[in-house]
Simulated assay, not measured.
Amino acid sequence: MKSQRAQWLLWCMVAIGLLILIFLTPLALEKVAPSQKDWGRLSAVSQTYGALSVPLSAIALLGVAASLAYQAHQTKIATEEAERSSHRQLLMYSLDHPEFLVCWEPVAGMPSADEMRRRIFTNLIIANWHADYLLRRWNDQHARAVLNVHFQGELARKHWEQSASVWRRTAEASGDRRKIRFVDLADESYAIAVETGPGVPPENYFADPS
């Protein structure tokens, strides 16, 4: 993201520089003209400048347009992150105060309160990876590598069995191809994990202290 931001700033600086060059060129011609001006020659130079100023102006305008597009993209990212942050805060508050779990939509299978909390936390994990993928911090290979390991767990598989359809509907409703692609990757990793055999149950995560 930093390198991308630097590229857009460079484009913006180039556009501003070209605009300044365009506006200052007539003054420069006036200054450098000899005292006994050859107006015919100066006119020819000016016409040449006029022809060159058209593509220079177009490049400058493209730079400004690119800068505005980048700013709009950054604003969109900031808005979506604020929405995700608000949602995370609500979920974390519910985890800390289980009496509010019933304020969310009911979960299929009638889980216990502890199971509900585990599913919510698992969903937060997936949502965090989803954000990294949307922001292009992750590519497909990175997402596959993480999801393949994630779905080795029994709870991770149960969560996706219950939530995959919701993730799919939300992604398709948004029309965002990258959101849809993330769900595709999760489905693929889940299917591969299921083929390998049963998932690791929670009680087998840790060594027996005895």
Rank of each mutant, 00 (worst) to 15 (best):
W129Y: 05
A78S: 09
A15C: 00
L9F: 00
Y93A: 15
Y93Q: 09
V149I: 15
L21M: 05
S43L: 12
F182C: 00
G197S: 09
D208I: 11
R117S: 09
E188G: 00
Q7T: 03
I77L: 14
A186L: 11
L52E: 11
A156D: 09
R88L: 14
E203R: 11
I22S: 01
S86A: 14
I16W: 06
V107C: 06
L68H: 00
P202D: 04
L95V: 06
V32E: 07
A44L: 15
A164H: 15
V54H: 02
K76S: 09
V183M: 13
W8V: 06
S94G: 13
R168D: 02
P26M: 11
P55A: 10
L52Y: 04
V45Y: 12
S165L: 15
P106I: 11
S189D: 05
L101G: 00
S174H: 09
K2I: 14
G175N: 07
Q141K: 15
V183T: 12
T122D: 02
A193H: 06
N204G: 02
L29E: 08
E115L: 11
K76C: 02
A143F: 11
L124G: 00
Q4S: 12
V149C: 12
P106D: 05
S3I: 12
L134A: 04
W138K: 06
S210V: 02
I126C: 11
D176V: 13
L10H: 05
I180C: 10
N139C: 01
I59F: 09
F100T: 10
A207I: 04
L135V: 00
V102I: 10
S174W: 11
E195S: 15
M116W: 04
K31L: 08
G175I: 12
T170K: 13
R119M: 04
P106N: 06
I126R: 08
I120K: 04
E172I: 06
G40E: 08
D187Q: 15
I20K: 01
P201I: 08
D38A: 10
D38W: 01
G109N: 02
L147W: 02
D208L: 15
H87N: 11
V146P: 03
L27R: 07
P198I: 01
L21S: 12
L134P: 13
P55S: 14
A58V: 07
M13R: 10
S53P: 10
E172F: 15
M1R: 15
D176Q: 08
A44T: 14
A173D: 15
E195W: 13
W8C: 02
L24F: 03
A44E: 13
Q71N: 02
I120S: 00
R41G: 09
L27D: 05
K76D: 03
P55I: 10
A65Q: 05
W160E: 13
W129Q: 07
R177M: 02
V107T: 10
K2Q: 11
I16L: 04
G197D: 08
N123S: 08
E80G: 06
G153M: 09
L61N: 00
R168S: 09
W160I: 12
H97E: 04
D187S: 14
S163H: 14
A69W: 08
M92W: 03
E99W: 05
F100G: 01
Q74R: 13
A33V: 04
S112E: 01
R177N: 01
F23V: 13
A6T: 02
H87M: 09
A193L: 05
